[in-house]
Design a protein around this nucleic acid. Structure first.
Length: 891
RNA sequence: GGGCUCUUAGCUCAGUUGGUUCAGAGCACCUGCCUUACAAGCAGGGGGUCAAUGGUUCGAAUCCAUUAGGGCCCACCA
């Protein structure tokens, strides 16, 4: 058969993926005879689509899981999706709006119906896309963070944490997204790069019963009507006499105290700060310290309410009022000017609207105590972060861990299982079901007549991370009734969890180290006493060549599926991995994908060569012994390197080592060594061993390029039953001869020198050359003599006792080589080059001698190092001798 | 502002406890080749004061200090 010179992935990839699925190779069950190796996927947003970050992340996971599978481990990669409450809800709201439906017109149940429909329609598209990449997930285990069992687990944990005292309801300053009508976590608040232009307005406040006034500076004059104090620094000589007096709020003349607080900086603004505890986190803190009144003048939709006491302002948006109040202050003669300044303004990640600091009752998890073990686990390398530099970051975060606000004013998500039976601050109970809640409420209130109808469930849902932090536990149904008791998951009860947990490696982005990774570790220890994974591999961010983050809005992100269609999944996978050391950003360049494609093509053509060879069993194959012995050693040496790279999670390096083994060593050297002349046959033994080498290298490559390697594996042998590369055995490292590698190195150097001479003298490759060597031991070239002759196209390679006239020469390891040249040799040029080398070697010798004559070096340096220096000296001396003799004879 | 971290070839990066293999790899670049596996290729080649300065040492890309310039995390100024 004749095969195309170009490898065509499109016809191959779907075929093998389907067969792997049909054969059930991705599926895993606990198997006590095998060592488990499990990975849980960082669940992507259920309605998301694949982007370049996913490609990198999932390629790495697939590489790890495929290698483990080949190593005979029970490999289990659990896929899943995250309900991603705020992101998904935002999408659903947008979709409804486009249909002309407002969320506010819907009931909670109606909205959720739309949301579930949306999820059914678009959910899991991303998982289908991962299949194109070749991801060998156990699809039968696909989990969704709002599956029934998962939902229950999240609720169960909420109740459990409440009962353990880790969970509390508290008044806190939260970030309020006026448009989405929800709180957003600090992490979801973004600040524009370089800040935003704003104005600082100076406003005069009258001091009560006095002619004096103070001028404050504010960028939010619309909050003036919520002021409950003026603060000055107690050390500020300008103002400290005012402390204890009262000031009057402009327009409404409400009396507010003047207080002293170190928070106020002497040299910013006017040195006087208006304090509005309801609308600024710092002011709130000051308010707590000084027992200030809290006057909340802004509604949830961003309009002012009647508490501002100015009827004309009520019901109008805060930004509109800002403009209005500036005019009014100016008109009243108390606007003392303004100045431009650049400040950071928090904006909601989802809606880009300016976030409003707002006091509100929220649910919090007290993190200090519960996170203690998780903190220690990473510090003591119980859980190992790769690269290790993230340990510091982790430590810093854990030392300053803040309580976690877990409530969100959304509908899409697990609804908080708190039930209110009255208006009092403590008139609520927390329970997994409303029936239990009734019982609890009857007890707590002492009112036995309470029924379900008297209970009102909390309207809020839980933060997405409050469900995904249970992922490694709940994908194995850890919180099921059967296994969960007294706030712990029982050991020895859940076969799956006992087998697969702790999982092996987590592969994720550093940006969610705290949101997700740290919290999974916390939950792991809290509920099983064990870590959720042994290693955490943190990938970089995929950026474009200008180092810009890839994003939809910039339009600099290619569609991964287009790339796969164009280049094949294998090419995209290797392209992503060529340049992505752990923790370093990946600068995406389509050239890298091309390099991956070219690599596939290279292997494909190597296969075309080998499969085309006719066998002639009358041939001895004796000439190929050296080549075979050498490649065998080279393979084992490289395998050792690759294993070491994997152990250190240097995936790029593991790929590069494999790449070089295949391209340089196998194709450029080995195949060229054994390749018969055109249309000539090869001996059976050589072909057989070559095919076995080929099999070994495709096995080594399989985790990186699963499709082409399966195709070649199938072509290379007569495969029956379940004989697929995906479950073939990973090559085992064997001992190898370092000597033969050294011998080959020398042979390669000789070949390189001959080829170099050829290039320099413009001698065609077809033209055979003679090579003579002046040596005391020609025997050392014996084993590679044939290889040297073949690869440098020599008509003869033999020893000589004399210097050869009319030749080009070079010196290696004290032996002088001559290539007699037919035409006139430019002796001056030859001499010049030789002189150059002589001068260099003399300089080198001098530095080595200097080192060796330094007594302190000889005394202090390890013996080994000194011996090496001596050897260097001897080699250089020998070389100089040869060169000098040669030059002398030329003169 | 606090903490962490980085700066090595044109680009992206290796370089473990200072000493064989220390100045490397891939890509890019230059030269010559359509040589019947592969031009998505073959053969060869050039290229770096290891950010700067000072120190420790027999010896520094590697350890220390200072400086300059990046990056990340945290906290943030009304």
């Amino acid at each position: 058969m004749s095969l195309s010179t170009k490898y065509d992935p499109s016809s191959v990839e779907n075929k093998w993926y389907k067969q792997w699925m049909d054969k059930g190779f991705f599926h895993s069950e606990p198997n006590p005879d095998k060592e488990p190796y499990s990975i849980v996927i960082p669940p992507p947003n259920v309605t998301g689509v694949l982007h370049m970050g996913h490609m990198l992340n999932n390629t790495i996971q697939d590489v790890l899981i495929r290698k483990a599978r080949m190593e005979g481990k029970e490999a289990c990669w659990v896929p899943g999706t995250d309900h991603a409450s705020i992101a998904t809800e935002a999408k659903v709201v947008r979709m409804l709006r486009e249909k002309g439906i407002k969320k506010s017109d819907l009931t909670r149940d109606e909205f959720l119906k739309h949301a579930w429909e949306w999820k059914e329609k678009y959910g899991g598209i991303i998982l289908e896309q991962l299949k194109k990449l070749g991801a060998s997930c156990d699809w039968e285990r696909t989990s969704f963070t709002m599956d029934d069992h998962y939902y229950k687990a999240v609720i169960r944990v909420f109740v459990d944490l409440y009962n353990k005292g880790y969970l509390y309801r508290g008044l806190r300053m939260v970030n309020w997204d006026v448009e989405a009508q929800t709180t957003v976590s600090n992490e979801e608040v973004l600040y524009r790069e370089g800040g935003e232009k704003s104005k600082l307005y100076k406003v005069k406040y009258q001091i009560k019963d006095s002619d004096e006034s103070v001028t404050i500076a504010t960028q939010r004059p619309e909050t003036i009507l919520g002021d409950t104090a003026i603060a000055v620094n107690p050390n500020d000589d300008r103002f400290k006499h005012l402390i204890g007096k009262k000031a009057l709020v402009p327009f409404i003349n409400r009396e507010i105290p003047i207080i002293g607080d170190e928070y106020v900086e002497l040299d910013f603004g006017t040195g006087c700060l208006k304090v509005t505890p309801a609308h600024d986190p710092n002011d709130y803190e000051i308010g707590l310290r000084h027992n200030l009144e809290v006057i909340d003048t802004i509604n949830l939709d961003g309009t002012l309410n009647e508490k501002c006491e100015v009827p004309a302002y009520v019901g109008r948006d805060r930004f509109e009022i800002r403009k209005q109040i500036i005019k009014d202050l100016d008109a009243a003669g108390i606007l003392m000017g303004d100045e431009e300044f650049v400040t950071r303004i928090g904006r909601s990640e989802r809606t880009d609207s300016v976030v409003e600091p707002k006091l509100s009752l929220q649910w919090f998890i007290n993190m200090k105590e519960i996170s203690r073990k998780a903190h220690a686990a990473v510090m003591e390398d119980e859980v190992v972060l790769h690269p290790a530099k993230f340990k510091n970051t982790y430590n810093h975060w854990m030392e300053n861990v803040k309580d976690w606000c877990v409530s969100r004013q959304l509908w899409w998500g697990q609804r908080i299982p708190a039930y209110y039976y009255g208006d009092g601050e403590n008139d609520f109970v927390v329970a997994e079901t409303i029936e239990e809640a009734v019982t609890l409420a009857q007890e707590k209130s002492g009112n036995k007549a309470l029924t379900i109808n008297d209970l009102k469930q909390d309207e809020d849902v839980l933060d997405t991370w409050a469900s995904s932090w249970l992922f490694p536990l709940e994908v194995f149904k850890g919180f099921d009734d059967k296994y969960f008791k007294d706030g712990k998951i029982l050991a020895g009860a859940n076969k799956e969890l006992d087998y697969y947990y702790p999982t092996a490696t987590l592969v994720t982005a550093p940006e969610i180290l705290f949101f997700w990774v740290a919290r999974m570790i916390i939950a792991g220890y809290e509920y099983t006493g064990k870590k959720p994974f042994n290693d955490v591999y943190l990938t970089g961010i995929v950026r474009d060549k200008q180092r810009r983050k890839m994003s939809k809005s910039l339009g600099n992100s290619p569609d991964p599926l287009d790339l796969i269609a164009q280049y094949g999944a294998d090419a995209v996978r290797t392209g992503m991995l060529f340049s992505s050391p752990a923790g370093n950003d990946l600068l995406y360049d389509e050239k890298l994908i091309e390099q991956g494609r070219n690599f596939g093509n290279k292997i494909w053509n190597a296969f075309r060569l080998v499969q085309g060879w006719e066998v002639d069993n009358s041939l001895s194959g004796e000439d190929n012994k050296a080549a075979i012995a050498w490649f065998d050693a080279k393979f084992n040496q490289t395998l050792e390197e690759v294993e070491d790279h994997f152990k250190k999670f240097r995936i790029s390096d593991a790929l590069m080592a494999t790449y070089k083994l295949i391209w340089n060593d196998f194709c450029s050297w080995y195949l060229e060594m054994i390749k018969p002349e055109y249309q000539k046959p090869i001996d059976g033994a050589t072909k057989e061993v070559t095919i076995s080498f080929f099999e070994k290298i495709v096995r080594l490559l399989h985790p990186f390029m699963p499709f082409i390697t399966e195709e070649l594996y199938q072509e290379l042998g007569d495969r029956k039953g379940d004989d697929f590369i995906i479950v073939a055995q990973w090559p085992k490292a064997q001992s190898y001869s370092a000597d033969i590698l050294k011998e080959a190195e020398l042979a390669f150097e000789i070949i390189g020198n001959v080829r170099n001479t050829r290039n320099a003298k413009q001698i065609a490759p077809k033209e055979a050359l003679e090579l003579k060597v002046k040596t005391s031991n020609f025997g050392k070239y014996n084993s590679f003599q044939g290889v040297i002759s073949k690869l440098s196209n020599l008509s003869s390679f033999e020893a000589t006792s004399e210097k050869v006239e009319n030749s080009s020469s070079f010196v290696l390891k004290g032996d002088e080589f001559f290539i007699p040249l037919a035409g006139a040799v430019d002796m001056d040029l030859e001499k010049e080059e030789m002189q150059k080398e002589l001068d260099y070697t003399k300089g080198f010798l001098k530095s080595v001698e200097k080192k060796l004559s330094n007594e302190r070096f000889v005394q202090n340096a390890p013996e080994q190092v000194v011996a090496m220096e001596k050897k260097k000296m001897e080699d250089a001396q020998a070389k100089i001798k040869v060169l000098e003799a040669s030059l002398a004879s030329m003169a």
